[in-house]
Design a binder for these strands. Structure first.
Lengths: 357, 357
DNA sequence: GACGGTTGTCGAAGCGCTTCGACCTGCCGA
DNA sequence: TCGGCAGGTCGAAGCGCTTCGACAACCGTC
């Protein structure tokens, strides 16, 4: 005889079910269908008649049913969660990272996924744990270095992953990023077009270059590259954060090259100080020195004067990254490299070069 | 051949287990013990002899076993994950939020928990979903407003939670935050002690006050409070971000009260601009105007001149929040309100008030 | 009318883990 | 001698879900 309605083969003497825990079985019972039918209504993996569907959905709503994530993950072998791996280091471009993270969460939600926040300071073990415990279906790594210790691990893990940024050896990996090389070129081209013959790139803190962070190196390469091509003299300097450091750097720069008239700043934290310090050194922006930023639009807009800039499209990168990852999770093939095209927005901080003295 | 009844009770013809998926059963088999024994070794919930323990642990290591999070959550009714709910709004103190988030992740890891990142822009449904699906054991809400729509929901959800910040009605909730009221007082007391008789609070953007964000209101109250008590004239102004906005505000302020000699800035984004703009208005810092910041130490250190400040101890708040949440998850009683004592660090931006003209 | 196809639903077997009671030692005191 | 009691270990019953094969009912077809 089938288990009658009154005699659930209750466990020996388990504590009563918490009343607020509605299971798929409750829904099935109330709707007068099998558990599997409810499941199929939810997943759409089999055809269910319209009338049954409606009835089931109504019961789900009434009972306030929410599938148990653990059970679902266990049975389906899909957690519907992705890991967002953030390094936790100095010199990070905090607002960009934040913008990016938010975009990832928002995008992931549109495809029914949640985001687990992982910091790399737990070391490779963190990644390994999260992947091996089947907590997540895929991994999103930010702020990848040229020689990133997480990269070999990633290959070994054998879980779908997408990197923001490019390691030196990207074989077998999926990477997205702004085309910083092109961004560097754009800046120089803009300044060269305005007649500037000597420009400087005020980059990220030295530590960022030292650990081989891709975007810094690639921007630098783009700048040098375009400068050579266009006959512009380019000097490149890392730049620490803080007004004092910026001032020191600028003083030394202008002393050595008094005819310096173009400045490319790739360091959010330095944008404000640069614009504040230049006037105190007798250089007006943009009359004497033109400044281009590689930074979020928000910063550029708020600066005084408003900054001509190549924005870092954190939102777009986040969206792309998630969408690539989802496709990899689904087993679809994806391009190994996705480079977003940078654009340059002209604002008030650049002007034609002053007449040669 | 058809799957006859005499077959091993193995599944009919399921795809072979992925070889890299090591289960607790594999460990048990290799160690020659029961599955439950392995489980107890891992959880320590029953005494296991030293010799067995060692053997099991060795096998775990060799096989590279990692418990499946979904299965564990299902069986134990504990996900070992907490949700970190971030609002995604304008005027957010991005670096503070980030610092805080990182501290939460790091602390959570020390107690074997992971962090699920949830944004409030999904609305209350996001919270409801995450809680009802048993994805998380508890919730951490940041940037709570005085009249926060998430607060009633939280009570209804009936899951352990901790708020960063205080809503108007905090009954039944657990809250942590810096004592911003005291912070406001500290700033005024410091300035008053230096002989300043008229000070201004340059606060968060107006939007932040409008939506009733606790820390902004409480700081203001603290400032007004101490000013009244100490016979100092205090004027309070919200302040938008961006150099232009800051300049406008300062100009208007100094025009109206030329004898203004103390400035309290509670807006990370405004600190740089304030220090940059004041000299251009003929006010040296600290000779003519003393400036105190309520902002992360990092900002204060990097400013030029180095800023006297009341730091927001994001790290400490994060640690406290997680630890409170864990205790609530464990069912232990916790204090309803935890207020962290602010401290004021004197640096180079404050000095005795200039002589009265 | 036997056959093959659809369509819609059900039942049951897991997914990998925790946990509870049961069951074996030994060893002690009575 | 026996009962009692720790200390250790095992077996099995779930946790709530997905998924696969089975199958009933209906359709049209040769």
């Amino acid at each position: 005889m089938p288990a009658g309605p009154g005699d659930r083969p209750a466990t020996r003497a388990r504590p009563v079910k918490s009343p607020d825990l509605v299971t798929i079985a409750d829904v099935a019972r109330h709707a007068g269908v099998a558990v599997s039918t409810v499941s199929y209504v939810l997943s759409g993996k089999r055809v269910i008649s319209e009338v049954t569907r409606t009835r089931v959905l109504a019961n789900i709503r009434v009972l306030g049913y929410h599938p148990n994530a653990g059970a679902r993950a266990l049975a389906s072998r899909r957690a519907n969660v992705i890991a967002l791996v953030l390094p936790l280091r100095s010199g990070m471009q905090v607002p960009v990272v934040m913008q990016f993270a938010m975009s990832v969460v928002t995008t992931a939600r549109t495809v029914e996924h949640d985001v687990l926040l992982v910091t790399s300071d737990e070391g490779p073990d963190g990644l390994r744990r999260v992947a091996a415990s089947a907590m997540v279906d895929g991994l999103l790594l930010m702020d990848v270095e040229l020689h990133d210790e997480r990269v070999p691990l990633l290959r070994e893990l054998g879980r779908p992953s997408v990197l923001i940024g490019f390691p030196a050896d990207a074989s077998g990996l999926t990477c997205v990023d702004l085309d910083f090389h092109r961004a560097g070129q754009l800046c120089v081209e803009h300044l060269a077009g305005l007649g500037h013959r000597r420009v400087a790139l005020l980059g990220a803190p030295a530590a960022v270059y030292d650990r081989g962070t891709g975007f810094a190196h690639r921007t630098r390469a783009g700048v040098v590259d375009a400068a050579g091509r266009l006959g512009v003299d380019a000097v490149v300097r890392p730049c620490e954060e803080g007004t004092a450091a910026v001032r020191r750097e600028l003083v030394s720069l202008l002393e050595r090259w008094p005819d310096l008239s173009g400045l490319i700043v790739q360091n959010e934290a330095a944008v404000g100080p640069v614009l504040a310090v230049l006037p105190t050194l007798g250089r007006r922006v943009p009359e004497d020195v033109s400044v281009v930023g590689v930074c979020p639009d928000q910063f550029a807009e708020q600066a005084g004067p408003r900054l001509t800039s190549v924005p870092v499209p954190a939102e777009e990168v986040g969206r792309q990254a998630v969408s690539l990852l989802m496709r990899r999770v689904q087993g679809e093939p994806v391009p190994a490299a996705t480079l977003l095209d940078p654009t340059l927005t002209v604002r008030d901080s650049t002007a034609p070069a002053p007449a040669r003295r």
